[in-house]
Design a protein around this nucleic acid. Structure first.
Lengths: 197, 197
DNA sequence: TCACGTATCTACCAAGTGGTAGACAACTGG
DNA sequence: CCAGTTGTCTACCACTTGGTAGATACGTGA
């Protein structure tokens, strides 16, 4: 069916556009043009812009959660290695598609309704992460500090690096293959330095 | 004169509104209403929205640079103490006014023209910071890594913490006085862990 | 007093916004 | 072959957007 594929294409394009230019900066006509369809077809699949935003948020959350959960499960016992695995796993999709985290970041300025929607979605992961940090701190395998805030600062670092290539470029960084490899290496070392007890 | 004060009030309100809701999410009418004036008065002082955005960016850069430069000069020799001083100095204005860094962050999705404008403005500070990091790494007083990327990641962390209280609140953090104090303490420790050789 | 510059206003406008109503194919199962 | 569903379309609409034109009030120096 071409039908469902249209829906998916709308979601994909919306994610990219919302994430890079902001929800308010993108009109339904813009999305329609990217998809190669008319605005009214978008309103057929999602009966309002707000609905579309919700769906796109879910879509983004799916993509991120899948990657993160896989990475968490894949590694063994050491917390530093585990976080490192998550950083690596997240790095590729995030830098290749700044819109992904860019959209999550957008959420802070949207209706509280959208916010709660996403929050509910991410909450289990957040809580699990927090508990995990806490127990590992007790075992002395992570630097002792507030686990929730540590998670927040890690998120801020990774999200910032992923969503603001513009800033890095101002620092003389280049977005080519070598640059990306270097960025990932430095990010991993940075995070490790942050966590080591 | 009420005149110049109107101009300044437009700048202040615009900074807050742009920074929190995004440039595209704020209309001239919105700003006008906040200031208590008509839209045409805004267009009298700034002859287009783009001009206003430029002026607001300058305004924000001024505010940040002043604080940062003062902090850099105030401290003595140790690089960790120096960065710590900058973090502390920036912390108050940034969390009390998320719009400040929020606007800087906005810049990535605006016209390249605006971007270059701001870039030119911040470049000297960026370069100085980079050189400083480099020399201190040579002297073994900072963890050895790429100085530019280190600066980028520090920026990402601090900007993220300052501009995304929403995320921190999802982690159970509260924005009261005690919460702010705790956040600052954790942020300082985080940054220190990042820099220590 | 009067011409002039300054700061603000009301009254518009063209373009773009999200959204509705309904026509038109294209495909289904009976 | 036909009735009904599904997906897309054209044609609108009410409202908001950034911006223009011009009137009004208020000094202020000659």
């Amino acid at each position: 069916m071409t039908a469902d594929s249209t829906r998916r294409r709308i979601l994909e394009e919306s994610l990219d556009l919302f994430g890079t230019r902001g929800v308010d900066g993108v009109s339904l006509d813009d999305i329609a043009e990217s998809v190669g369809v008319r605005k009214q077809s978008i309103l057929y699949w999602f009966n309002s812009k707000a609905t579309l935003v919700d769906a796109v948020l879910d879509h983004a959350a799916d993509e991120l959660l899948t990657v993160v959960e896989a990475a968490v499960r894949s590694r063994g016992d050491d917390p530093l290695a585990r976080v490192d695995a998550v950083v690596c796993a997240v790095f590729r999709p995030v830098v290749r598609r700044p819109a992904l985290l860019g959209l999550v970041r957008e959420v802070g300025r949207l209706d509280p309704r959208h916010l709660n929607h996403l929050r509910q979605r991410l909450d289990p992961v957040i809580q699990a992460c927090r508990c995990y940090f806490e127990s590992e701190m007790h075992r002395g395998r992570l630097r002792r500090c507030d686990p929730a805030l540590l998670a927040g600062m890690l998120y801020a670092t990774v999200a910032g690096v992923g969503t603001e290539p513009v800033v890095l470029e101002s620092l003389g960084w280049t977005a080519d293959t070598a640059g990306l490899r270097q960025l990932r290496r430095e990010l991993r070392r940075y995070v490790r330095a942050t966590l080591a007890p």
